[in-house]
Design a protein around this nucleic acid. Structure first.
Length: 494
RNA sequence: GCGCUUAUAGCUCAGCUGGAUAGAGCGUUCGCCUCCUAAGCGAAAGGCCCCGCGUUCGAAUCGCGGUAGGCGCGCCA
C-alpha cells in the first residue's frame, strides 16, 4: 500500500499502480495463469449434451452441450480429472416404433444418405399412421420387446440407428470442439437397475402406491419418487439412480454434475434425496447444473410442429456470415475457412455462455449473427490485435520493460481485469457458471481496447514499448485462455 | 392449488455474501481511420432496479406478503 485516505465514511487505500500492474502483467502472461492442482486425483463426472438417438440436434441442445463442455475444461484446468459422459437417450418404445416404421416404409439407402432426417421422417410417419390405426402401437411394443429380449435383428437395427445418429452429431461436436469420454446411455444401465431396486426394498424405502413401488418423500415436501411402474417396469429415476451408482463405483467421483434443463429440477431433487435416504453421504456430491429454455420467437421448439432450428444450421450460417465479413475486411487472409469456423462457432457459443445459466433464451438470428460489441468475435479480434502487435514488436522481446510507461488509467483498468482472472475461474467452478469467465474476458478486452486507442504501443522508446507489449501479451494470454475455457478457439489472425 | 424460478434502460443482460452518483452491449442520433487490424474508440439520449411492508445509519441486493411471466407436480424422458 502506498497511502490511505479517509473520504466521507470510507477509508480508501491507494496502492502503487506501477508495482501492481507489473506483477499482474508478468503473471498474466504465464502459461497456466489461473490454473491450479487443487483437483489432483479427483474425478468429476459431467453428464451433458445427452442427445436422443434418431432425433435432430437442435438449438435447444446447445445449452447443455456448451455449458457441460465449458465445465469439463474448467475442471481440468483446475487439476481435476473431468469425465465427460453423453447420456444417450437410446432406449424405450419409441425405438420399437422406429423399427416398425423402417420395416414398413423405410429403405436403407435413404437412411444412409439422409440419416437423422430420414429416421425422423419415419418416426413422424409412424405417428400419423398410428393415429389412423391403433394396432401399429401394439406392433411397435412388440418390436421393442424384441429389442429387450436381445433379438439379434432388432438389436442390430437399434445399433445401426445409434451409429447413424452419432456419426451425424459428431460433426457438430467436432465443429464445436466438444469431447466425451463415454457414450453410455439408458440402454447401458438397463441391466444395472435390479440391485438398486433390491437395495431400496431391503432398506424398507419402497412403499406400494396405486400399484407402483415408490419412495415416499412427503416429509421433504416432494411428491413420491416412482421407482417401479405397476407393470413392474422401471422409470427414468430408476435409471438415473443406477447410473449414479455405476459412476460412483467405477469412478469414485468427487462430484457428479448433471447438466440438464431446469424442467427436471424436481426429478433430480427427488432421486438425489433417495440416494441420501439410502444412507449414502455422497448425495451431497451430486449437482444438478440446471439451465433455462431455448425458445423461438414464435414459441417453444417443437419437432412435430416444425418449429425447429437445427444447431448445425445455426453454426453453418454463422460461419458463412463470418466468411463474408472476412472477404470484405481482410480478403487476403490465409486459412479463411478455418478462421471463419473459429469465429462463427465462437460467436454462437460465446453468446450462449455470456449470461447466467438460468435465463431463458429466445433464439434470434439477428442477435446470434451480430459480431459487434460484447461478442465472441470482439474478444477474438482483441486477441488478434495483441498478436499482431507482438509480431510487429518481436525485436523488443529482449528489451527490459520500463513499466512506468503503464502508469495510466487505461493500463491500470486493464491490469485490474487481468488480475481478476484467477478468481473468475474459481467462481465459475464453484458456481458451475461459465459466464463468470466470459464476463472477465469481456472486461479485459474492453479495457485493453481503450488502452490501445489512447496509447501508441510501439514507438521510439524501446523500454516503454516493451512494457506496453508485455501488457498486450498478458491480454492475449488471458483472452485466449478464457475463451478456451468456455469452449471457444482464438485465431492468430482474422 | 402446491413447489421451483425469473422480474434492473426501447431490446438482451451484468450488478444481488447490504455501502459512494445503478453499469454494459445492441438499437437510435452524432463524432473519430494520410498513423500499430474501424469485428475498434468516443459523445448524446434513455431508469418508481415489478409493487407494498419490514430489518438497517444505509436496500436493486436481506426478510415477509403480493403481482406478472416461465417450468414442474405419479406410472414419458
Amino acid at each position: 500500500f502506498k497511502e490511505f485516505k479517509v473520504i466521507g465514511a470510507y477509508l480508501n487505500f491507494f496502492i502503487d499502480p506501477v508495482a501492481f500492474i507489473k506483477s499482474v502483467v508478468i503473471e498474466g502472461a504465464e502459461e497456466g495463469y489461473g490454473s491450479s492442482d487443487e483437483g489432483q486425483g479427483k474425478n468429476i463426472c459431467i453428464d451433458y449434451s445427452s442427445i436422443n438417438i434418431a432425433k435432430p440436434f437442435h438449438v435447444g441442445h446447445i445449452m447443455s452441450t456448451s455449458i457441460g463442455n465449458a465445465l469439463y475444461r474448467i475442471y481440468n484446468y483446475r487439476g481435476y480429472n473431468a469425465i465427460g459422459i453423453n447420456h444417450l437417450g437410446d432406449w424405450g418404445t419409441q425405438f420399437g416404433k422406429l423399427c416398425y416404421a423402417y420395416e414398413a416404409w423405410g429403405n436403407k439407402e435413404d437412411i444412409e444418405k439422409r440419416n437423422i432426417d430420414a429416421l425422423l421422417a419415419l418416426y413422424v410417419k409412424f405417428h400419423t399412421e398410428a393415429d389412423k390405426d391403433d394396432s401399429l402401437n401394439d406392433a411397435a411394443r412388440e418390436w421393442f420387446k424384441r429389442i429387450e429380449n436381445g433379438d439379434q435383428y432388432a438389436v442390430s437395427l437399434l445399433d445401426w440407428f445409434t451409429d447413424i445418429t452419432l456419426k451425424r452429431v459428431n460433426k457438430v461436436y467436432d465443429l464445436m470442439g466438444v469431447k466425451f469420454d463415454y457414450y453410455t446411455g439408458e440402454r447401458f444401465y438397463n441391466d444395472k437397475m435390479t440391485p438398486i431396486v433390491d437395495e431400496l426394498e431391503d432398506k424398507g424405502l419402497l412403499t406400494e402406491s396405486q400399484g407402483a413401488r415408490v419412495v415416499d418423500l412427503e416429509e421433504y415436501n416432494m411428491p413420491p419418487c416412482i421407482i417401479m411402474k405397476n407393470d413392474g417396469t422401471t422409470l427414468y429415476a430408476t435409471r438415473d439412480l443406477a447410473a449414479a451408482f455405476y459412476r460412483k463405483k467405477t469412478f469414485d467421483f468427487y462430484k457428479a454434475l448433471y447438466v440438464v434443463a431446469y424442467q427436471q429440477n424436481l426429478h433430480f431433487n427427488q432421486w438425489f434425496k433417495v440416494v441420501g435416504l439410502m444412507g449414502y453421504e455422497w448425495e451431497k456430491d451430486l449437482e444438478h447444473v440446471n439451465f433455462g429454455m431455448v425458445s423461438l420467437v414464435d414459441g417453444t421448439l417443437s419437432t412435430r410442429k416444425g418449429r425447429v432450428v437445427f444447431l448445425e444450421d445455426v453454426l453453418n450460417k454463422a460461419c458463412e456470415k463470418t466468411a463474408e465479413i472476412i472477404d470484405t475486411k481482410n480478403p487476403n487472409l490465409e486459412n479463411k475457412e478455418k478462421i471463419a469456423k473459429q469465429v462463427g462457432v465462437g460467436a454462437v457459443v460465446f453468446s450462449v455462455l455470456s449470461q447466467g445459466r438460468i435465463k431463458d433464451i429466445t433464439f434470434d438470428w439477428d442477435r446470434v449473427l451480430n459480431f459487434e460489441g460484447e461478442t465472441g468475435p470482439y474478444m477474438q479480434y482483441t486477441a488478434v490485435r495483441c498478436n499482431s502487435l507482438l509480431t510487429r514488436g518481436e525485436d523488443l522481446l529482449d528489451v527490459a520493460p520500463d513499466y512506468s510507461a503503464l502508469n495510466n488509467d487505461e493500463a491500470f483498468k486493464t491490469a485490474k481485469a487481468l488480475g481478476r482472472f484467477p478468481s473468475a475461474i474459481e467462481n465459475a467452478l464453484a458456481k458451475s457458471e461459465p459466464y463468470l469467465i466470459t464476463r472477465n474476458v469481456i472486461d479485459v478486452a474492453k479495457a485493453f481496447n481503450k488502452f490501445y486507442f489512447e496509447h501508441k504501443i510501439i514507438d521510439d522508446d524501446k523500454a516503454a514499448s516493451a512494457a506496453r507489449l508485455a501488457l498486450a501479451k498478458a491480454v492475449k494470454n488471458v483472452i485466449t485462455t478464457g475463451l478456451y475455457l468456455i469452449g471457444v478457439e482464438t485465431p492468430e489472425k482474422m
